[in-house]
Write a protein that binds this DNA or RNA. Structure first.
Lengths: 143, 143
DNA sequence: TTAAGTGCAAAATCTTTGCAAATGT
DNA sequence: ACATTTGCAAAGATTTTGCACTTAA
């Protein structure tokens, strides 16, 4: 199944119509291995209305197609979810690495996350782990 | 040293003048064991201008007096720093627990954080760990 | 055909900036 | 006295809402 087919399936699966703007957003997000900020998305697909973009992103998030993760500046970044997310079960429990140089947000999926121990009384629902520093690319440039 | 003296010392230490609004913010933040959002602060000290509050918070953050932590909605919450922070060295490496019921953000300082292992190439600078769920109070209410 | 999605205009927020008046040292 | 800080007004930026037009199914 190629990408396009995959996207169309994804949309159909969530009862969302297959439209130009939506496919653009999906292919953009899937092309990057990093989470993308709303402003970035906006500048890349400038011909799509800003409001439409907001609505697409929030629809996708509700349906469990994408995750929203806030970077160090509190701006929303978006990334495609693992395939087992849906509107009831959102799992985004991997490390988000924010590069302070290129500002990219890396989703480091296949890192084994250490177990979380909470004090008595707290009931855990989900967690997120984010780190800052230099990504491999920027780390090299600096050296 | 009582609280007030402590605050005045804190301000002097960072070359900030001892003003009413600033002391109000400090005593508010120290009274809570949870991080407080800008809107919350604003509603509690409604007589202080909104702009002033913004400026106080960013000044405090720059000086290393408070930490900014974003909650699940991407809104900024503020909490007093551990005493060993300054403008060059910000450490906020403890668990932030966001209660989905009361919306409070708990700073769980004395939890031993698991070590972070990053893939090769990434250079770690700092990290933050945040969890969601129910805090002890709300957990009881639900039962 | 028709419900869903888009684009535009406009409202509502949120945050920053400029400047005069007030205040702490 | 003088640099800082505050408050107000206004600009900028971000996000939401309403509604008519378009489009996928």
């Amino acid at each position: 199944m190629n990408n396009n087919q995959h996207f169309e399936h994804l949309l159909k699966q969530h009862q969302l119509k297959r439209t130009g703007p939506r496919l653009r957003v999906l292919s953009l997000l899937s092309a990057k291995n990093v989470a993308t900020s709303q402003p970035d998305l906006e500048s890349v697909i400038a011909d799509v209305d800003r409001v439409t973009l907001y609505r697409i992103l929030s629809a996708f998030e509700e349906k469990g197609i994408i995750h929203k993760v806030f970077d160090l500046n509190g701006t929303a970044n978006y990334a495609l979810c693992a395939s087992d997310c849906n509107e009831h079960d959102h799992h985004d429990e991997h490390l988000h690495f924010n590069c302070i140089a290129c500002k990219n947000v890396y989703c480091l999926d296949d890192l084994d996350m250490p177990p979380v121990k909470l004090p008595a009384g707290f009931r855990l629902d989900g967690f997120s782990f984010s780190a800052t520093g230099l990504c491999p690319k920027c780390s090299k440039k600096e050296a």
